[in-house]
Amino acid sequence: MADTTQPIPANAAVDPSRRNLLKTVGITAAAFGAASAFGRPLRAQSSDWDKTFPQSDAVEHSKVEFTNRYGITLVGDLYTPAERPSDAMPALAVAGPFGAVKEQAAGLYAQTMAERGFVTLAFDPSYVGESGGQPRSVASPDINTEDFMAAVDFLGLHEGVDRERIGIIGICGFGGMALNAVAADKRVKAVATTSMYDMSRVMAKGYYDSLTDEQRAAGLEQMSRQRWEDAASSEPALAGGLPDSLDGIDDPVIRMYHAYYKDSERGYHPRSVNSNDGWTVTNPLSFMNMPLLTYIDEISPRPMLVIAGSEAHSRYFSEDAVAAAAEPKELMIIEGADHVDLYDQVNIIPFDKLQSFFEEHLVA
């Protein structure tokens, strides 16, 4: 376990307004005009390359579908090394960030790890992107944890995968979901996270646990009454996404997320939650009373690797998760990196470390 002594940078002020908090967290969502049947993908699938990163000649890519325990159809991108051994291979399920789609950071991680000898599956979680579920633009600590387990189901049934050598990578808010999934799913042999967020903690308590009891109660009051508005409407109200312009906005966290999700040359994607119009107003309700990392110590004796940037506003989530976990565990701090750098900056993301970690621990 790495020693980290640098203080957490206090560069993200907490807005007492619940709606502004959601924007600051970066949990914004895409609103879609087309409806889909419950449990079916939102749109027709295509294997055309529509990612935010270049396609690798060393990897084969295909679109796949699988179903979670709640009957929701999930859509993923399966990446396999173009030159595969005859034996079954180790595999990784990859998801995140919270509000992103598989064409963004998760796909970059998956393709890169496939280049390094793994079968990888980057998938859209329920209610997001090309995956099924109605209504759109919602998340769940339970269902999204289950999404990881369903990805393990799929990989374990794939003929090219050694089902005794499956790991998970969770990015940002799906880092917390990944840790929660592995605590329960004993099939997973190792887990790694980057720029990890504990979504239940930040929604319930605000950044650095600074939300007062009065502010928490006011937020719950607002969302509770919003349920009547949504029930009377044809579709739930949206909280609003990242602003199109940064004019007059000084908040460093909003500016950081904007630089990734709104930049067409970097991370913008038309299906991405965070690139577009916002989660539902009531999205935090289930997270606020259901702590994700309650049983994090039950990941042991399987290893966990937690990676965070030294300048990330979210760094404390990683530090606290590692402190609460049992051995074996490792905290890796990337000097000079902020939260979003670990989404797409390939010269900063420690892929060598991820490769060696999973090669060492994904053993039959």
Results as ranks from 00 to 15, higher is better:
156 G>A: 09
157 L>S: 14
157 L>T: 14
158 H>Y: 04
160 G>W: 01
160 G>K: 06
160 G>F: 01
162 D>A: 11
162 D>V: 02
162 D>P: 01
163 R>A: 15
164 E>G: 09
164 E>M: 08
165 R>G: 06
165 R>Y: 03
166 I>A: 05
168 I>G: 03
169 I>T: 03
169 I>L: 14
170 G>A: 05
173 G>R: 00
173 G>F: 00
174 F>A: 06
174 F>L: 15
174 F>M: 12
175 G>H: 00
177 M>P: 00
179 L>A: 04
179 L>T: 00
180 N>L: 05
181 A>N: 03
181 A>P: 00
184 A>N: 07
184 A>K: 07
185 D>H: 04
185 D>K: 04
186 K>G: 07
187 R>S: 08
188 V>I: 14
189 K>C: 09
190 A>R: 00
191 V>Q: 02
192 A>H: 00
192 A>E: 01
192 A>M: 06
192 A>W: 00
193 T>E: 05
193 T>G: 06
193 T>D: 05
194 T>G: 03
194 T>M: 14
196 M>L: 15
196 M>P: 01
197 Y>H: 11
197 Y>V: 13
199 M>Y: 01
199 M>I: 13
199 M>A: 11
199 M>S: 10
201 R>H: 09
202 V>H: 02
203 M>N: 10
203 M>C: 12
205 K>H: 14
206 G>I: 01
207 Y>S: 08
209 D>G: 10
209 D>S: 12
210 S>T: 12
211 L>R: 08
211 L>M: 15
212 T>H: 09
213 D>I: 09
213 D>R: 10
213 D>T: 11
213 D>W: 06
213 D>M: 09
214 E>F: 08
215 Q>E: 15
215 Q>N: 11
215 Q>H: 10
216 R>V: 07
217 A>W: 02
218 A>Y: 02
219 G>M: 06
220 L>G: 04
221 E>G: 08
222 Q>S: 11
222 Q>K: 10
222 Q>F: 12
223 M>V: 07
223 M>Y: 05
224 S>K: 11
225 R>S: 15
225 R>P: 02
226 Q>N: 13
227 R>L: 15
228 W>H: 13
229 E>G: 06
230 D>Q: 13
231 A>E: 14
232 A>S: 14
232 A>K: 11
233 S>H: 10
233 S>R: 13
233 S>T: 09
233 S>G: 11
233 S>F: 07
234 S>R: 07
234 S>K: 08
236 P>C: 10
238 L>H: 13
238 L>A: 14
238 L>W: 04
239 A>V: 09
239 A>L: 12
240 G>N: 12
241 G>C: 12
241 G>P: 04
242 L>H: 05
242 L>W: 03
244 D>T: 13
246 L>W: 09
246 L>P: 12
247 D>T: 12
247 D>M: 08
